[in-house]
């Protein structure tokens, strides 16, 4: 019951956030330039009539609130309308969203598969040579700019070695470099979080109690310690999501990944409001949704939250 109430409460909050975000986006976007002018900028002999005709064709002559309402109701009905320049939005955006999620999830999973065991190792062997190496590597990982790292990978693995495709989404091999680029940064930060929270949990008395019960070190670490430190990790991942999305835009551009970031950049350059406002709204929905999921996972992991 409290869980349902909680979801209802967060759902309402999410709706309000979306309302504010979409209204702001729709409004702000229209301040950045007239798409009719952008369309006709390379055509000769443009008259005011031509502009008016194009505006009418794009539906830009209607009052702002009507345009806004069409857009918002479309978000709920799934009928997202048409892009100014390239047909129905829904398939374009779902395709891009799929590509972005594929990349984000792969990077996240790879990063967790690397950072959890290494983080645990570093925490258990605090101050050892291995711990030092891991800490230096994670610091190095943090200091790579996304863009630079992406270009370096391309130069090494595509241009020089010719092992991997330099760009695009053309199959599993094309996923490797973009996922690694994002994964390196994620891993670097996750590693630090896992190490720190593990250190804290491992010094807790209940860990010693678990050992005193005769449990193997394996179940002490992976059952008791990991479950407890995952609470902090999940919280952190939720907070990190926005940053991850920001990083994705850059990485998508470098690897020409047909995702939301590339789509947004193109839409911006063309003043394609319908696409742009859909992309931003979906990102906002995702951030709200991820935070909701984080809260729910948090509740599942931590009975202290669930039962209060």
């Amino acid at each position: 019951m409290p869980v349902i109430g909680f979801i209802a409460k967060r759902g309402l909050q999410a709706l309000f956030v979306l309302f504010v975000v979409t209204l702001f986006i729709s409004f702000a976007i229209r301040l950045t330039g007239d798409p009719a002018v952008m369309m006709l900028r390379e055509s000769a002999n443009v008259s005011a009539d031509d502009l008016a005709r194009v505006r009418e064709g794009l539906g830009l002559d209607r009052p702002f609130l009507v345009q806004y309402w069409d857009f918002v109701s479309g978000l709920f009905t799934g009928d997202l309308g048409n892009s100014f320049f390239r047909g129905p939005i829904a398939p374009i955006v779902t395709g891009a969203l799929g590509a972005t999620l594929l990349l984000a999830m792969t990077s996240l999973i790879v990063s967790l598969l690397i950072s959890i065991p290494l983080g645990i190792y570093a925490a258990r062997h605090r101050g050892s040579f291995g711990d030092q190496v891991i800490r230096v590597l994670s610091l190095a990982g943090l200091s790579f700019p996304n863009f630079w790292l992406g270009i370096m990978l391309i130069l090494i693995f595509s241009v020089t070695l010719r092992w991997l495709p330099a760009s695009g989404l053309t199959g599993p091999a094309s996923l490797i470099m973009p996922a690694v680029t994002i994964g390196v940064i994620l891993t670097a930060t996750n590693l630090r979080i896992v190490r720190t929270t593990m250190l804290e949990v491992l010094s807790a008395q209940f860990i010693m109690v678990a050992r005193a019960k005769g449990l193997s070190e394996r179940s002490v670490i992976y059952k008791h310690a990991l479950r407890n430190s995952s609470i902090a990790l999940v919280t952190y991942l939720g907070l990190q999501f926005g940053t991850l999305m920001g990083g994705l835009v850059v990485v998508e551009l470098v690897f020409n990944w047909p995702g939301m970031g590339t789509l947004a950049v193109e839409a911006i350059s063309q003043r394609d409001y319908p696409i742009l406002q859909t992309v931003i709204s979906i990102l906002a929905i995702m951030i709200v949704l991820v935070n909701l999921i984080v809260d729910l996972v948090y509740m599942a992991l931590d009975p202290r939250i669930r039962l209060e």
Binding site: A204, Q205, F206, M208, V209, A210, R211, A212, K213, G214, L215, H224, R227, N228, I231, L301, D302, P303, R304
Partner: peptide
């Protein structure tokens, strides 16, 4: 451990795994 020799610790508040 836990079988032939068992132990009770000082801090009951932190001796049990909270999750």
């Amino acid at each position: 451990r836990g079988n032939r020799i068992a132990m009770i610790f000082q801090e009951p508040m932190s001796s049990l795994d909270p999750v």
